[in-house]
Design a protein around this nucleic acid. Structure first.
Lengths: 115, 115
DNA sequence: TCCAGGTTGTAAAAATCTTGTAAAAGCCGT
DNA sequence: ACGGCTTTTACAAGATTTTTACAACCTGGA
């Protein structure tokens, strides 16, 4: 069963792939991503994430969520910050990727072909 | 009847061959490989493997599965880890071999081509 | 039946991976 | 600029897997 899909990212219970490259997420990373992507577009408060994914009771002082968001973003590559947005003072929000993929081909060899 | 096939690996009920070389697997090794490859791409939990292949009831403390995965991987040669992937804390997943063989030749020669 | 060879499971140490925390650095809104 | 919140990095503890070695167990043939 699929949790979320768009042009680049595909999230299933069996696997997560970004542009046909399989991402290996840890359990917590996956649970967090699932939680966020299942509520695409909605801002989920920190407290809610900490409670649903970690089972922490409200009031627990921890930075775990932030660190996991960080690791998740890194695995999502350059679009990490696009997919997982910070809502300052509230929580995080998962969003579908807007613009297609910018195609940039640097390097001299490229020009030689076109010339 | 064939269980799984790709460019390198061929798994039938009668034989398993890797690049036209017949592999001699033991019964348990074969059952494990069959179970995994029949569900290509899906992560199969340890518990499920231990129950279906070994008939163990859930909760049995054993390392047998790990050891058999080890022996299987070894027989699959350098691609052992590619075909049989570990999903930490969950189980194992059989996957089709990705890219053929990454042939990368860095260095000055590359630039000479473009020039 | 007994032996030889191969198969299977276990134990234990070594290696690896995951996860949470601490602390410094950076960012945000006022 | 300030206080509060988030990001980033590094580390340590705990959990899980890998690896090796060994012993028990089959099974077929002598």
């Amino acid at each position: 069963m699929q949790i979320f899909h768009d042009e680049h990212l595909s999230i299933d219970w069996s696997a997560v792939r970004f542009d046909d490259v399989k991402l290996t997420l840890t359990r917590k990373e996956f649970e967090l991503l699932a939680m966020l992507s299942q509520n695409e577009g909605e801002t989920i408060p920190r407290e809610v994430l900490l409670e649903t994914v970690w089972g922490y009771r409200s009031g627990t002082r921890t930075r775990t969520l932030d660190v996991h968001v960080r690791r998740l973003r890194r695995k999502l590559g350059i679009y990490g910050e696009e997919y997982i947005q910070t809502i300052f003072g509230v929580g995080y929000r998962f969003a579908r990727l807007r613009a297609p993929r910018p195609l940039v081909i640097p390097g001299p060899a490229t020009y030689a072909i076109g010339a």
